[in-house]
């Protein structure tokens, strides 16, 4: 009897999860479905399956989305490489060395974690305008590269927990600070770094308000901004193609997730909890 009841409980859980999953999936399935409809199918039966499939939507959307995707990739790679390189050096120094002003400086860095991005929004925009960086990829790369305090916190605790013996042995061999950093710290922390890199790229990919303000031109537009723009900014929105653009904007993240599932989940969890 108890056995049956436990089974019943499991079935009930599956049933509830199925309902939740259906509700979760409806909008996403709808998105993919709509992305294959032509404008007239939209009005006849919006929720029904697309038939015939309009692949033109994707051709149209791809023409508009290819540059924004490229921008995202460039901005992502450049800013993440820069921020992680800088943050790793800083975290390493703060974790393993004692020097004048150390606490003072570290406290100053940690203060940043308390500053919400809202107060920075307007003056950073002014900074971008002042230096004529509007509508260049720099307007995205530079502020994103400055987004480091989180990485520093995570890497610093990682470096601090490494056993001293490792470093002592290298020092005996005559390694200086730089060698300790590049030969021991960096190789050991690669998994952590890649987790943080994924968190950064996820965050950058999701950011809408900032790119839509400073990079609203074909030369620098990012993917998610382009999706909204493609739908709202044209005279005649092609609803199906707009949906296709949304799908295209999501695909790189899906691929990244599939190839690096563990790191992805770890990175986002760590980023969220520490932030």
């Amino acid at each position: 009897m108890a056995h049956f009841r436990r089974h019943l409980g499991q079935y009930a859980i599956h049933a509830i999860l199925l309902i939740l999953a259906i509700f979760t999936a409806i909008p996403l399935i709808t998105l993919v479905n709509l992305s294959f409809k032509d404008p007239y199918q939209f009005n006849v039966d919006p929720m029904g399956p697309a038939s015939p499939l309009t692949f033109e939507n994707y051709a149209l959307a791809w023409r508009f989305m290819q540059d924004p995707l490229l921008h995202n990739i460039i901005v992502g790679i450049v800013s993440i490489t820069a921020s992680i390189a800088m943050a790793a050096a800083t975290a390493f120094v703060f974790a393993r060395f004692e020097f004048p002003g150390r606490n003072w400086l570290f406290g100053a860095l940690m203060l940043i974690l308390l500053v919400p991005s809202t107060v920075l929004f307007v003056p950073t925009y002014q900074l971008i305008i002042q230096f004529s960086l509007q509508n260049t990829l720099w307007s995205l790369i530079l502020p994103y590269a400055a987004h480091q305090s989180l990485i520093i916190v995570v890497l610093r605790s990682f470096f601090a927990e490494l056993p001293s013996e490792m470093f002592d042995a290298a020092k005996v061999d005559g390694a200086g600070v730089w060698q300790l950093f590049t030969r021991i710290a960096i190789p050991l922390s690669l998994p952590v770094m890649s987790a943080m890199a994924i968190f950064q790229i996820w965050w950058i990919w999701n950011d809408y308000a900032w790119p839509s303000l400073v990079a609203n031109a074909p030369e620098a537009r990012t993917a998610v901004a382009a999706v909204i723009f493609f739908n709202d900014g044209m005279f005649r929105p092609e609803p199906g193609a707009g949906m296709a653009a949304a799908v295209i904007a999501a695909i790189p993240m899906v691929i990244l997730f599939l190839v690096s599932m563990r790191t992805f989940v770890a990175g986002i969890t760590a980023g969220a909890l520490k932030g």
């Binding site: 033109e56 149209l60 959307a61 023409r63 508009f64 290819q66 540059d67 490229l70 921008h71 460039i74 450049v78 230096f131 004529s132 960086l133 260049t136 990829l137 720099w138 790369i141 530079l142 074909p218 030369e219 620098a220 493609f230 044209m234 005279f235 005649r236 092609e238 193609a241």
Partner: peptide, 30 residues
């Protein structure tokens, strides 16, 4: 450091300037 990028704002990122005829073709009614 900030003065440097102002000198050449458009030339710096290698791909900041896509061919203009490519993307906006989407405005064309299919």
């Amino acid at each position: 450091a900030c003065a440097a990028p102002t000198a050449a704002p458009t030339s710096a990122p290698p791909t900041a300037a896509p061919a203009p005829t490519k993307a906006p073709e989407a405005t064309k009614p299919p």
